[in-house]
Each structure stands twice: as structure tokens, then as C-alpha cells.
């Protein structure tokens, strides 16, 4: 706890940032699953009611997503309604920050042992691909290049602009809904 007293602002800012990005990703994941066929096709292989969680160890911020069936996701905020089926856990808030500030690719973070998978590896591989596609959609191209292994070839600029705008809009509206609720 000493370090927190020494560097209160930096540590808290990092925490807030991770929480915020989890919210953006959660909302965007739900939005993208309603419009993007690639994501839907990937997600269809997940069982209905499948709960996916991304969290920071030991009990930090988290992001919970449910597969409603037919490739659609619902964002559950940070609380899972029941035990999750697949959990991807960052070992430390610093590692979550590296990945979520797009300084380290998700696949590199796995390769670097920054996070653990609890659950079926096949589903984890699938969720990683979905997260990669999400990042390619919601981030500017330059940033996305750094975040994902390979920039999707079928994500051309007009489509990207179009879809990204739609997602941002959806994210924004869902944010307002959340704030109001």
C-alpha cells in the first residue's frame, strides 16, 4: 500500500482508465455483435448463455459479456449474474493497462504470460479474435495496427468509417442510458 501513497494520482488514473475502457469495450462488443457478420459468425460457436469475463487480478475491474445466442452479445457491466464460463485474467493492473492502452497486442500479452485463461482454450482463442476485430473497428487505423496481430483485410476504409461511427453512436447512446439508469 506504500506505493499507492507515493504515487496516488498515476495509480488511480490507470485504474480509472482500465475501468473506462472495459465499459467502452463492453458496450462496443454488444453493438458490434448486432451489425458485424464476422463477429456474429465467430460468436455463434459459443454456447447460448455463455458468460465471458475479462478481469484484473486480484479483484480489480472486470468486464462481463453474455452470448445471447445467434452471435449476439449482451454487456453485463462488471458483475456476472452467475459463475462465468470463461475468464481471461490480467495478472496485474499494469498489464491490463499495457493491453487496454494498445501498447501491447492481446496475442502478445498472452504470449508474454501477462494473463491467464480459466476455461476452454478454444473459446479463449475465439474471444481473442473477436476482441481483435473489435479493436480494429473502434480504434483509428494506426492505433489498431499496434493493437492487433493483423489488420483485417475485409475492413476497408468506407466500411470501417461507417461501422465505427455506428458503433460510437451506439456506445454513446448506451452510455447515456447507463448514466441515466
Amino acid at each position: 500500500m506504500l506505493a499507492r501513497r507515493l504515487q496516488p494520482m498515476a495509480s488511480q488514473a490507470r485504474r480509472l482508465y482500465v475501468e473506462l475502457i472495459f465499459q467502452v469495450m463492453g458496450n462496443a462488443l454488444q453493438a458490434i455483435s448486432e451489425i458485424d457478420e464476422d463477429v456474429q459468425n465467430e460468436a455463434r460457436a459459443l454456447p447460448e448463455g455463455f458468460l465471458f469475463e475479462m478481469m484484473v487480478m486480484p479483484h480489480g475491474a472486470s468486464l462481463v459479456i453474455e452470448h445471447l445466442g445467434n452471435g449476439r452479445f449482451r454487456y453485463h457491466g462488471s458483475e456476472a449474474p452467475r459463475p462465468v464460463n470463461l475468464s481471461i485474467q490480467f495478472k496485474h493492473i499494469a498489464h491490463a493497462f499495457l493491453v487496454l492502452s494498445f501498447q501491447e497486442k492481446t496475442s502478445v500479452a498472452f504470449a508474454n504470460d501477462r494473463m491467464l485463461v480459466d476455461g476452454d482454450i478454444g473459446y479463449a482463442v475465439r474471444m481473442t479474435r473477436i476482441l481483435n476485430r473489435l479493436e480494429a473497428f473502434i480504434l483509428p487505423r494506426l492505433l489498431a495496427r499496434r493493437a492487433v496481430k493483423e489488420y483485417p483485410r475485409n475492413l476497408h476504409l468506407p466500411e470501417k468509417l461507417l461501422n465505427a461511427t455506428r458503433i460510437y453512436l451506439k456506445v454513446a447512446s448506451q452510455f447515456f442510458d447507463t448514466v441515466r439508469a
Binding site: I121, A124, V125, T128
Partner: peptide, 8 residues
């Protein structure tokens, strides 16, 4: 595509 090795 569902095999863990593909991740790396």
C-alpha cells in the same frame, strides 16, 4: 481455428 496453438 479453435486450437490454442493458433494464438501464438
Amino acid at each position: 481455428l479453435d486450437d490454442g496453438s493458433i494464438m501464438f
